[in-house]
Design a protein around this nucleic acid. Structure first.
Lengths: 235, 235, 235, 235
DNA sequence: AATGAATGAGACTTCATTCAT
DNA sequence: GATGAATGAAGTCTCATTCAT
């Protein structure tokens, strides 16, 4: 979305500031619930002037999304391309991801919640980037399996576990809290790597216990919506 | 929210069907982006008749949320109260949670994405329920630590890892896919339980490698937004 | 608005009760702000049944209006036709009017506030009745002037004073209060009759004082919206 | 209800014009029966632009009410505070009240008919102003009684008579008619002041005649809804 | 006699966007 | 660069009325 030529030197600076504020508002109230008026008030600019900078409301969304995905994907590619133990590269990639979640928490909120407000073309680009990032993770996990560090059978599922653990963090993390991105990355990778390593005999066999439970206690189904003890209801 | 007295026998049936459809639309397009007209078209009912059943748009949201949280919390409390190994109970609770995610995927979408659209009282109730569920998980993890099964230092963080792993599943899971709730639960708990058990020496010391990397490669900062090699930019 | 033949014996009784309740609701909340649902709830009948009795919402208004105007006009004509001192007849007519205001306070509220909601034909009937009532008052005042009891110059204005004094009563009167219709009628007629009798020299000449005031105090105009002391604003 | 900062010079002018037109429409059709669309058509502005000026429909009502009550109460207080015969002050206050009724007839219609449509806070303010105005009248009447000009026993009732006589005027007055506010004020005050002066023996004793009538003519009850000659109805 | 269900017009209000100045 | 004013579509919700049962 090229701007007409002949912008003053402050144009881009101010534009970035507006996107910052928009991200913060969208994160707090949601994209749909934030009006251009709200944004104008927060920026200190009338509606007309706002449009001079932003083009359209949806365009703001695009900018916010790419602010996150652009740098992240760039750095992730660099990390994945390093010549190093895949476990280290996963660990670095994890910290990279968490770092941007910490730094751009409001962007991530918008990214996660309102990407469906995007139109066809923009949405495709975004989904492509997501998919590229996933592929990087899968690649590293594959290398780890091949070198014997991990013993996972379903690579796709391992990837998803990695992503679940990291991507849901934005829901509760507080950047000024007690934990920083490096610490969290260490913890997450610790859990995942030990979990994926799967040395025999570490656990009592929970799976067997679970199977037994389901067999022996039909009165307490795991499905939260199932009826309890249907026999008691028979007349 | 009781309806005025005197409703025909089909009322509740149809009402439930409308909520079903609403959940599906909200999940696909988002709560804010779905209009009552959309819903009417999907249900095959004029606007007026819709309101006869639903009361208000926000009330639909409440119903959808409580359809998920009510049964889940009820079953989770039963499971947590069982006399059994805390690991087993965690495993059962995990499957219970995943079961409802599979069954009510669209409800979960709405639940995760649009709870911010709730008004004060309803929002408080919902957040209270979330918090109750978290407390159950923390309790079980505590028991597991006390009996020596886990060696986690930060219980709060362990809880959050459990929740991250499960709760983000709705983002990609497909109920009719190759994996079911029981399998996923086994995998998740496998990873987590082995990860939390933390037997010494399982991993090469990734943390040390990471620390070394950060020291030796300042040209490749983990922060995706950091500038590369700033010296090269100096004029 | 004839009802279809073949109504049970209770029909008219119930119909009257519904109109009673409607009048009470309309008076309290206003005609436009009272829904048929409200009425149904107050009556204890579903909407469908309500329409069986009332025909339409506007028809309720007509019934309420005619309940007031019919009897009042009838009685007023009888009183005006009596062979008696016109002052006595005015006094009796006054009490008659106040009696119905006390008894049917809610009907009067509706009558005074919502007659504009009537359609053409009904509205004309109503205005005709109002005008008939006014003519009776004017007639009696004329007789009083002719027999020398009153010394009013503008008969029309005397009529309007009579009506103002009585008709505005509904705005503040409370039927269960300390005053009843007979007492109020005595007071009103006392004031009016003494006022209309106009014996010379009863008052200091207030009109002269008022004229002097207007002349001498241009800085305090009686018009509430006029500017104060315009000279002070001159530059 | 301050508008966001930065309105052009024409804003307030146009806003006042819109309120003028709204008052005229509300007076003619009633507040509830006048839609924002109606207003837009009358003003020559689309709905959206209307809201740019008015804030809300109810806010229009508030503005209309305060346009009347603000100036009136201000001027009334000044008049009541004058050092002058209380009869003169009553006469001036009367003319002041009638002047605004003449000038702002449509505002008065709205004021008298639709104040019930106001919400809690605004309604309280309005009722408070009404009550303040009444208190001024009562105060002047009290002074008149104390100096021997009036012989009323019920001050509250005298106040209400004053208000009835004046406030109901809006129902029939036509500003461009033969009478102006000053004339009407003279007539009203003439009637009231002579009526309240109550010199003995001015009237034949109408009250005695009325009592006799009620005693002697049970067949012609003053209650318009009473049955005639109930004996004839006995079976 | 009565009901629950359905309709569709219309109510108030918000909002992204445009444009003359 | 910036503003205030204007638009018109669309949103949520209410309501008088009808009708099959």
């Amino acid at each position: 979305m090229p701007r007409p030529p002949g912008h003053g030197p402050g144009f881009e600076v101010r534009r970035q500031k507006i996107i910052d504020i928009a991200a913060s508002l969208f994160a707090r109230q949601g994209y749909a619930a934030t009006s251009i008026n709200d944004l104008g008030r927060a920026v200190g600019l009338a509606k007309g002037a706002l449009y001079y900078y932003i083009g359209s409301k949806e365009h703001l969304l695009v900018e916010i999304q790419s602010r996150v995905m652009g740098p992240l994907l760039g750095r992730a590619r660099e990390i994945a391309a390093l010549e190093a133990d895949p476990l280290l590269r996963l660990r670095l990639l994890s910290e990279s991801l968490l770092t941007i979640i910490f730094r751009r928490l409001d962007h991530i909120w918008v990214y996660e919640h309102d990407y469906r407000s995007l139109s066809g073309q923009e949405l495709e680009t975004l989904l492509g980037q997501r998919s590229d990032f996933e592929a990087l993770v899968t690649g590293l996990l594959t290398e780890a399996v091949e070198q014997g560090s991990f013993q996972v059978t379903e690579l796709r599922l391992a990837t998803l576990q990695f992503l679940n653990l990291h991507n849901h963090t934005y829901q509760w993390v507080r950047p000024e809290g007690q934990w920083d991105a490096a610490f969290l990355s260490g913890e997450y990778c610790g859990t995942l790597f030990r979990g994926f390593a799967a040395p025999a005999g570490v656990l009592p066999d929970v799976e067997e216990l679970a199977a037994a439970f389901k067999r022996d206690r039909p009165d307490l189904p795991l499905d939260p919506e199932a009826q309890w003890e249907p026999t008691a209801l028979a007349s």
